[in-house]
Design a binder for these strands. Structure first.
Lengths: 264, 264
DNA sequence: AACTGGCTTCCGCTCAGTGGAAGAAGTCCG
DNA sequence: CGGACTTCTTCCACTGAGCGGAAGCCAGTT
C-alpha cells in the first residue's frame, strides 16, 4: 500500500452511511468528486459505492451527472415512526383547519426537537421548522414544552449546556430559562416570540403518553399576533387530548422506535 | 469454510440494504432471527450489521429486543424529493380545504404510482393509498391520468403486462383500458369506481412539467358520491395549474431525482 | 493540439468481513 | 429446581470483497 491514505478500521457500512449523510449538509445534488471530498473517501471507492447505491435507487443520477438522494430512500423511510405520524396526522390537520395557522407536531431527539409533521396552507406567512428538521429546544415553543414536562435529569442536563442564541430574543440564561420552564409546567403551555427567527412567534402544548411527555403540538404565527395567540389554547388542548386518545393503545416504543438517547 | 452456506459475490452494501428492506414487507418490529431469515444472512452476520445500523440510528431497538427502522433514516430521507413535496404541499393542502375530501399527489415510479403526499382530516371516510405507498396504475385515477398522458412507449409497455385485478370492478382488459386512456387524454381527467377497494371512488387530473406529465393530483371519496364527483373538477384543475406554476422553474430532475425507469 | 477537471476502469494486495460454533441469557414446563 | 428450548451475543481463524493508486477516457477550454 504505497501512499497509505487508507484508513483502516472503517467499515463499509460507515462509508455507505457517510455518503447518505453528505447530502444532509449540502442542499441539492453532489458530483462524485464532491461526495468523495465530503466523505473523505478515495475517489474510486466513492465511485464504487455510489454506483451500487444508485443501482438500489438510494441515490439517483441527474442527466448532468450529479447525484441526488433517490426516492427509494424516502420510500423505505416512510415505514419509520408510521404509528405516531399516521395516528396524529389527521388531528394536526384539524388543528390547522380550525386555526388557519401553521401547525406542527414535534418530539425530542437528543438535545433537539425533531419536527415530525407540519400542516400549512398556501398563504402561509411565517417560516417554521420543516418536517424532518431539528431546532434547539430552548428556542421553540414545542421544545420548551417538552423540556418542561420531561424528567428532571433531562431538563437539568439540557440546562447545563451552552444555550445557542438564534436572535436577540432567544432566552439563553440557564437560570431564567429554568424559571420559565417551571412556569410552563404550571400553566400547561409554552410560547416564544421571535426566538428562532424575527417576525414569528409560536405557542405549544404537551401531548402525553403513558403519563410521560411524548410529543408536543404547536402553532407558528406572525409576530404581530403574539398578544392574542393564547386564544388558540382551547383548540390546542382539545387536539392534544385527541392525539393522546388515539395513541394511548400504541406502546410508546413502537411509536417512534425508542427515543434517541439524550446524548446522541 | 466447512458447511459453505457462504454466498460469495454479495456485497456488504447489498446486505445492509436488504436489512432495511426487510422492514418493508413486515409491518412492525423484527427480531434478530427474523431479520436473518428474511435477508438470508447468517445470524452472526446479521447481528453485526444490525448492531452497526443501530449505532447509526438507522435501526432502533425496542425494550423487548426487537428492531425497528430508526428515526434517523426518516430524517435522512426528508431531503429526498423535497423540491416537489415542499412546492406542492400547500396546494394539496388547499385542495383538501376546498373540497373536504382526501387529497393526494402521486408520481410514476416504474410500473406503479407512488404517493408523494396526502392530506385528509380526522373524519376521513375512504381508505386511500398511503404516503410512500405504491399502487398499480390501471386501478387508480392518478395512475390512469399519468398513463394517459405519458409517452406512447410507456403506455404500450404497461398495457402489454398482466393487469392485476384488485376488485371485481378493476379494468383489466388491455383493449378496453387503452380506449379508456384515450378518453381520459381527451377529457383531461380520470375516474375510478371501486377499482382498488370497494366503497371508494376517485378522480384525478394531470400536473404537467416542461410539457410532459410530471405528476397527478386526485381526490378519494366514498363510492356513493361517484355520480357527482366531477363537481370537484374546477378545483382540481385550478390547483393543478398552481402546482405547475410553482414547479415550473425547478428542473424536473431535481424534483424527484430522475424518475425510476419503467423497468425497475 | 495541448491542457484541465471530472469520471470510469483496472488489478494485485490485504484486512474487514465472515460465519460456524460455543457460550450466555432468558422462557417455559413438569 | 432442573433441563429442554429459544434467542441473542461473543469469539476467532480464514479468505475474498473491498480497496485505492494509477492509468485511461471523455468533454470542455484555451
Amino acid at each position: 500500500m504505497a501512499g497509505g491514505s487508507r484508513e483502516p478500521g472503517r467499515t463499509v457500512t460507515s462509508k455507505v452511511l457517510s455518503i447518505l449523510e453528505a447530502f444532509e449538509k449540502s442542499r441539492g445534488a453532489l458530483s462524485l468528486t464532491g461526495i468523495a471530498e465530503r466523505t473523505g473517501l478515495p475517489l474510486s471507492t466513492a465511485h464504487r459505492l455510489v454506483n451500487e447505491l444508485t443501482d438500489w435507487g438510494l441515490l439517483s443520477r441527474e442527466p448532468n451527472g450529479r447525484y441526488q438522494l433517490g426516492i427509494r430512500l424516502w420510500e423505505l423511510a416512510q415505514n419509520t415512526g408510521r404509528q405516531l405520524r399516521d395516528a396524529a396526522r389527521p388531528f394536526v390537520q384539524d388543528l390547522f383547519s380550525l386555526t388557519g395557522e401553521t401547525a406542527h407536531l414535534a418530539v425530542r431527539a437528543g438535545h433537539e426537537v425533531l419536527y415530525i409533521d407540519r400542516v400549512y396552507g398556501s398563504r402561509r406567512v411565517p417560516r417554521a421548522g420543516r418536517v424532518g428538521g431539528r431546532l434547539p429546544m430552548h428556542a421553540t415553543a414545542v421544545g420548551k414544552v417538552i423540556l418542561a414536562f420531561e424528567e428532571d435529569w433531562v431538563r437539568d442536563a439540557y440546562l447545563n449546556r451552552q444555550l445557542e442564541r438564534h436572535t436577540a430574543h432567544t432566552h439563553v440564561d440557564p437560570k431564567q430559562l429554568a424559571a420559565e420552564l417551571t412556569r410552563i409546567h404550571e400553566q400547561g403551555y409554552a410560547t416564544t416570540l421571535e426566538e428562532v427567527r424575527l417576525g414569528s412567534c409560536s405557542i405549544a402544548v404537551p401531548v402525553f403518553h403513558t403519563g410521560r411527555i411524548g410529543a408536543s403540538i404547536g402553532l407558528v404565527l406572525p409576530a404581530d399576533q403574539a398578544a392574542t395567540m393564547t386564544r388558540h389554547l382551547p383548540v390546542l388542548r382539545g387536539i392534544a387530548a385527541q392525539i393522546e386518545r388515539a395513541t394511548a393503545r400504541i406502546p410508546l416504543e413502537t411509536l417512534l422506535g425508542s427515543h434517541a438517547a439524550l446524548t446522541d
